[in-house]
């Protein structure tokens, strides 16, 4: 006898403004409380310290904003999801808004398994536009981009060029230049701050950084974890997987 299929919701939310200074772990706790406030039938782990079964995808670094954060929640029974985005947003702090909720099909891949890349808006500060533009072109033309990283106390050099899937200069911001980048999360990953580093300009630093999309590959097609609304469909959301 196989266990009954798990009921899972995928929640798509944004993080903007002051709340971007809240850590990933604290955001998880905010969701735990919001789900309890709504009295949703969240599934709990077994054992002496039962925890609600939530699973986040990629962590968002402190101080980064995002239009595309996702969270999967396991439930013990089906619930209506039409009103959930509004109700969850109301139960969460200002700056965290739930824009979509979808029920996952049984067996759908978890966020950790499925996400392969993200699109970022990255503001860089401290260099003239021409120099940044040249550095971007140089990075794209390069076949290798070695990056020295310290992991678990050991220094290792990784070629991160394969993780730069797309990169372009968008234009000037108030105090710097905005880049847009598609960066892989696997098999080789590259974080926005590391991208700024591998551009190789002395004194270049990061300003505001925003995640615009997270991407997964389903049947060879790149798509988002919760499909964005088609204007013709009104407020209904579709599963991406």
């Amino acid at each position: 006898m196989s266990p009954p299929p798990k009921i899972r919701l995928r929640i798509w939310f944004t993080e903007n403004g002051k709340v971007r200074f809240v850590s990933h772990r604290d955001v998880a706790r905010l969701f735990e409380r919001a789900l309890r406030k709504l009295r949703l039938p969240v599934a709990y782990s077994e054992g002496f310290s039962p925890r609600p079964k939530l699973s986040f995808g990629l962590a968002l670094s402190v101080a980064h904003e995002s239009d595309a954060e996702y969270l999967d929640v396991e439930l013990t029974e089906h619930v209506g999801i039409e009103d959930l985005p509004g109700a969850l947003s109301a139960a969460l702090p200002d700056g965290i808004d739930v824009v979509g909720v979808a029920e996952l099909e049984p067996g759908a891949a978890s966020l950790q398994q499925a996400i392969t890349s993200c699109t970022w808006s990255i503001e860089v500060l401290g260099a003239p536009p021409a120099e940044v533009t040249a550095a971007v072109a140089e990075a794209l033309a390069a076949t290798e981009r070695p990056l020295e990283r310290v992991r678990k106390g050991k220094t290792a050099v990784t070629d991160v060029r394969p993780a730069i899937l797309a990169l372009e200069v968008v234009g000037p911001t108030g105090g710097g230049i905005e880049l847009r980048a598609d960066l892989a999360t696997s098999p080789v990953s590259l974080r926005p701050a590391e991208l700024v580093e591998v551009l190789g300009i002395d004194g270049l630093s990061e300003g505001r950084i925003r995640r615009l999309h997270q991407w997964m590959i389903i049947d060879g097609v790149r798509c988002e974890p919760v499909r964005r609304p088609d204007p013709s469909m009104g407020q209904r959301w579709q599963r991406a997987s």
Partner: peptide, 16 residues
């Protein structure tokens, strides 16, 4: 200044 300090969420308010 906040991206440069530990635990910046200490300084933003916004509590329920």
């Amino acid at each position: 200044l906040l991206p440069k300090v530990q635990k910046p969420a200490r300084y933003i308010g916004g509590e329920d």
